[in-house]
Amino acid sequence: MKPVSSLAVALAAATVLSSAALAQTATPTPAPVTETAQPAMAQPAPEMKAVLDKLTELGAKPIGTQSVEETRKGPTPADAAIAVMKDKGIQPDATVAAVKTKDMMIPGAAGEIPIRIYTPEGTGPFPIVVYFHGGGWVIADIDTYDASARGIAAGAKAIVVSADYRHAPEHKFPAAHEDANAAYKWVVENSGSFNGDATKIALVGESAGGNLAANVAIAARDQKLTAPLAEVLVYPVAGKDMTTPSYVENANAMPLSKQAMEWFVSNVFVSKDQAADPRLDLVNRTDLAGLPPTTIINAQIDPLRSEGEMLAEKMKAAGVTTQQKTYDGVTHEFFGMAAVVPQAKEATDMAVATLTKAFGD
């Protein structure tokens, strides 16, 4: 059962003095005091807990407690998932393992950026998924999110182009957004060079990358570019409000906490006021109509859960075909852990179903 997402109310009962004598002399009993209780954070499912425990065992420190350089060098949830696989003797899915990769550099908005092209088994030409990784626009890279891209390529039988982008604080907002748009344009224009079919193209992004994917879809609409047939946003950054129910519930969650999000904001933006930019504050945009069919995937134990759910409602209200699901018992970063976390396999299947339907396969 999901935890109560709004603040619970604790009622105190007053003691009634029945003695007539005391009633004549005693000070009137004060009115009952209503206290606001903090909602308890949900407990992770056993498989998710095993990954979080391994992350701690590997020496991960809470995001926001170290410098950018130290944080980038630290173990990641992906490292923990791989370690759990080794501990349990779990082998990668054969179809996933068969996906081939090619690394290259392409023009970004201000210099070259890395991409990795994932090609599934088959002859092609293949549909294309442009994928953007997470990391708060500060940490992580293509390698960190390798499992997500491989799983999508294998499941959707599509080429996945995982595009990196400039990171903050070296490159402040909107550098990553500009690079994401440049990467999408390059993929459309050069799809034939890697056996891709640009008439069947979609977007996927996780966390900060989910925000990038959403913005690329908006840019494609506004600039009359080749339109993506679908987008899958996995626990996207979609708002600026850090007082939502999920932020309150999961303020101290691993691996993403409220402190971590505040740390990302401090590194990404020149000033906190920039978080109100419509590219960040998607839930308050008034121009969401005309976007492709959208699937939004959220984790229960995640500060970003509420804004993902709100974004889904806003998109539906704008007439966008939208489905959203929050997976219980899992945390931010669960999506790429299909080999060890059952909910991650379910979420990957949901994403793949969205993509294959859009591609007409």
Rank of each mutant, 00 (worst) to 15 (best):
A154H: 01
S271M: 10
P114G: 11
G290Q: 11
S162P: 06
A31L: 14
W186R: 12
A45M: 10
P107F: 07
T36D: 00
A351W: 07
P30T: 08
L280P: 00
A227T: 12
L282W: 01
I90T: 14
E313I: 01
K49C: 01
G329K: 11
H171S: 12
W137R: 04
V161K: 01
T243N: 14
A253R: 05
D164A: 13
P228G: 09
S246P: 03
V99C: 02
F173A: 08
V340H: 02
L280I: 15
G89V: 11
V84D: 03
Q323V: 13
D349F: 05
T326H: 03
A94V: 13
A21L: 13
V16I: 14
A227L: 06
K357N: 15
I297C: 06
V352I: 13
A12D: 00
M310N: 04
Q66I: 05
V129L: 04
H332F: 13
F194C: 01
L11E: 12
P174E: 12
S5H: 04
L288W: 08
P107A: 11
V248W: 02
A182E: 10
E307R: 07
H171N: 15
I139Q: 03
D277T: 14
A97F: 05
K325S: 07
S162M: 07
G210E: 01
A109S: 15
K54C: 09
G135M: 11
T76A: 09
K314C: 04
V130G: 01
A94L: 01
K272E: 08
I82N: 03
K54R: 15
D103H: 01
A168T: 13
Q24H: 09
G239K: 04
S67Y: 11
T29Y: 02
